[in-house]
Amino acid sequence: MPDRDRILSKVRSALGRSSGQAVPAAPPPRLVIPSWSLEERIRRFSENFLGETFVAANGDEARDFVASKTEGLAAVASNSSVLRELGVSGLPNVQCGFVDRDELRLACIAAGVGITSASYAIADPGALVVLAGAEEERLISLAPPRHIAVIPADRILSSLDELFTVVPDPALESSSMVLIGGPSRTGDIEMTLTLGVHGPREVYVVIVE
């Protein structure tokens, strides 16, 4: 008997179930969503997110902030429409528009900064939500030592519970959804907090109102 059938038949006999037997409904998901105002969500995000947060009053401010953090460094930007509309993609030292895997990878390794947007952010616990696809990509927020994410304020959700209400099944949208809670970190040597192990040691989130 192949392993598949062997395992499934062992599971069934362990549970006293037969093939195709009906299953009662699972306990319903526990989703409790607080009704926080936008200001409240921005405030909590800034408080909870372990990277640094900058609230920009308008697009120009956001772009200037990104420019100040990329000065003198090679930067790679994702193909996000937010970045294009704000003019971030057009900053002098920013490369973007990659479609080839190897080229993008080399650029990410050489870059000092990776610039992305995010599909959502979460206020509590503080996190960015990045779904890979036409706009975002897996390595730009990971490989360079500094990551800057620019997001419109209204993409900030209150909580994990709200995220799973808005995106009940991330698999329907992308092969990869990642929640980013702050910089890459480790405590593996004597529990001493060390930043930037394999991912960025600095993460900036620019919230555009």
Partner: peptide
Amino acid sequence: GSGQPITSYTSFLSGPRREGEING
């Protein structure tokens, strides 16, 4: 596990990369 409200990364991965995704 480590006393963190959320860890630095939580990946939700479903299958190989899809059409339009560059890495993966």
